[in-house]
Design a protein around this nucleic acid. Structure first.
Lengths: 202, 202
DNA sequence: GTCTATAACCTGATAGAC
DNA sequence: GTCTATCAGGTTATAGAC
């Protein structure tokens, strides 16, 4: 390839895929290299160690998501509309990058959130929590709603389907693909409906 | 120890803990043995291979959960009451065994649900799906509710908090324990409220 | 039934040629 | 900037003594 930036980026992309399948522990530098078309040695040349490469993947992923949320301008919408927008956008992005939540789940399970906390990734919940607080304050959402718990549970509702799809496909048919348009659209619809109903003031 | 059954059971318990932390790939037979007080050789003597031990853990876990759900007699309650009962019970059990959902998540991510499907573990969703169908049929739940999607999303709502707690503890304080009584009770309350509201007919 | 010792293999990382 | 070769450490699994 002989192009430093291209090689570096290529490794980072392959690494994201690999970490999404197996987590930091299970990922194999050999596999990452193979998928990139270069050798293991290049990973250490550009990223020093598997752990540093992992942190870089994590950092990029959080920054990408943060930037995207900022672009939504949630605060310029009514809380309920902001909520719908937030989840429509999130679900769209996750359809293109279903490994993102897997990486963060692996991080929690395998590393007990050590690197997650290092890069202050909890900021991923900021915009959603603020929207929920706003909805409670203006009387659109339930008053007994605890914003942090609700935000986490809503996120769980969205990403659990994606992360466990290979377990649950047999609920439809033995070789169903839960990420294809038909199934995924049903998931999106169900998520948005459930999200709105679960926070709405009755 | 010199007690075959005791040793066998002890290995299975330690294995469940280890697989819950690291999944099939990441688990170390050495660690399992160490926690049991016997040597690695015993694992192969009783369970042949790490993979077979893993299947045994999975099988026991599914059977335990199935038996417990059967004991609830959900069909003898009104759908909404059955739903509350189901989640109260599930959340109580998960507080004692928080590794259960972790094992199943690892299974989906690392093994693409290969062993999950082998033991037909999707039956774990049967009682919940039936309850939802019953609620729709009798008009207590939303008519546009898709039982399988809703069941999955509700499960996700419950277990995501548990599985990502080590990522998210900093939303409260740097060293908060999200499984302690105070935080967990808030999670249970929020889950039950959200579950009911998200399925109720408006 | 349980242990020790070891075989056979795999993985992350480094050294050095090109 | 990229590759080949190799080291050092760690892992599953087995053989054989007690």
């Amino acid at each position: 390839m002989r192009d430093a930036e291209a090689t570096k980026a290529s490794i980072l992309d392959a690494a994201e895929e690999e970490f999404g399948r197996f987590g930091l522990q299970g990922a194999r530098t050999e596999s990452i290299a193979a998928q990139t078309g270069v050798t293991k040695a290049m990973i250490h040349y550009y990223y020093d160690s598997k752990e540093r490469l992992y942190c870089e993947v994590l950092r990029r992923l959080v920054e990408r998501r943060t930037r995207r949320m900022d672009g939504l301008n949630l605060h310029s919408f009514e809380p309920m509309d902001a909520l719908k927008l937030f989840f429509s956008d999130l679900l769209g992005e996750l359809h293109n990058r279903p490994t993102t939540p897997s990486i963060l789940l692996f991080e929690a399970l395998q590393n007990r959130g050590r690197f997650y906390r290092e890069i202050s990734a909890a900021s991923l919940y900021g915009p959603l929590i603020e929207t929920l607080e706003r909805g409670v304050a203006c009387g659109q959402f339930r008053v007994d709603l605890e914003p942090r718990h609700t935000a986490i549970n809503l996120m769980g509702m969205v990403v659990f389907y994606i992360c466990t799809r290979d377990n649950l496909s047999s609920l439809w048919s033995m070789d169903a693909d839960l990420m294809d348009s038909e199934h995924y659209r049903a998931h999106v619809d169900e998520c948005v409906t459930m999200a709105c109903n679960s926070v709405r003031r009755l």
